[in-house]
Design a protein around this nucleic acid. Structure first.
Lengths: 212, 212
DNA sequence: ACCTGAACACCGTTCAAGT
DNA sequence: ACCTGAACACCGTTCAAGT
């Protein structure tokens, strides 16, 4: 909606957002290796030193991009909770699917969000760290819903959420890394595989024995 | 054993291995950002163009380093199987611990092994892809041991192994990314957390209901 | 306050030579 | 066969200037 009427030139404008947008596109199309500060600047129509007026570092721009990713994740999780407000088990499974789908659709951004390695963006950027914690809290809330409904065996919501996160995250990472190409080529296959994984996971946490 | 008597200069020698060794150390000490082909060459005592006689690419050197990582993982998994030859459930849990420990101790290498993103080393290097598949087969074998012993509910070894892998991998990735600092600061905590996660996971796969 | 241009140190890679 | 040195195009970052 707001994109169509964009000005064709900003000799000055909200460059900061333009840089984030250009960086995100560059990341998606050419990978993190193709995301250079100089080309980002060129795409935004400014000189290659202009970004330093808005980001102290290249890392800071990357952190801003990853922050957007976490915000999208939070939004997706919140929507899952709202859609299945009366079914905490379904919330759990659909949250996993939403997580994996988001990662599979934006592999480069996901890589940035959980990079690990020495690319510890989050150590350098508080905003990013906060956004990540917020997304985790959304997941904790889903588990708490299940605890309130009494469907889980254990009682530590944070710990259970951690397990669940590890599960979805691991699956997403393996798919992104292309290590499950046989079983996860189409998006429909990804959804079904994730559902299977989350259900197995849920079986280990459930109070009752019967599982379908 | 073989390191002590190393020659002080190799005007010629087995440079290829020297480069891998220097690269591994550089990766561990200064991260992937600090691993530059030029400094690797300097550490090995050769000019910065000499590596091109042994690796067509910087990516190829990285792939060689990651391959070593997968071989270490295979070795660790094999040792777990041998040590707990009569207890497939324990094999499962100890394998997860071995996996996570290896990743936590060599985070940069792990990052290389499962990079995902556009750093798809494995698409460019067959040796690396083979080593990765071999490590996965070791895990499949562990699950097959459990199937033979009849402790699992489901019957598809590959699928169960995939789930298990996703689990351990996700946990390792989250720890490396520093997203669980509270619950996994010491190595002992990492072990206990991993044990908890793997046991929960195992509970979802087990045939019987009783879990300790 | 925001942007530009020249400049610096660094990197991956290539190529004509050297031994 | 294996290694070197100069060279090229590129990058992140800095800084004195411009408006």
């Amino acid at each position: 909606m707001t994109r169509q009427a964009a000005p064709k030139r900003y000799h000055h404008g909200d460059l900061r957002n333009a840089l984030i947008k250009a960086g995100t596109r560059l990341l998606r199309d050419h990978g993190v290796a193709g995301l250079t500060l100089r080309t980002v600047a060129k795409r935004a129509g400014v000189s290659h030193t202009a970004p330093y007026r808005h980001f102290p570092d290249k890392v800071s721009l990357l952190a801003a991009i990853a922050t957007v990713g976490f915000e999208q994740l939070s939004a997706a999780l919140t929507e899952v909770v709202v859609t299945h407000a009366d079914d905490p088990a379904k919330q759990f499974i659909e949250a996993g699917i939403a997580y994996v789908l988001l990662a599979v659709r934006n592999p480069e951004t996901a890589h940035l969000m959980f990079g690990g390695g020495s690319l510890d963006l989050k150590d350098a950027d508080q905003t990013l760290e906060l956004a990540g914690k917020r997304a985790f809290e959304d997941l904790v809330r889903i588990v708490e819903n299940g605890l309130r409904a009494g469907i889980y065996r254990d009682g530590d919501a944070e710990k259970l959420a951690l397990v669940a996160w590890a599960h979805a995250h691991g699956l997403a990472t393996l798919i992104i890394a292309g290590r499950i190409k046989d079983a996860a080529s189409s998006e429909q296959q990804v959804i079904e595989l994730t559902r299977y994984v989350c259900q197995t996971q849920l079986s280990g946490m459930l109070n009752n024995t019967s599982v379908n």
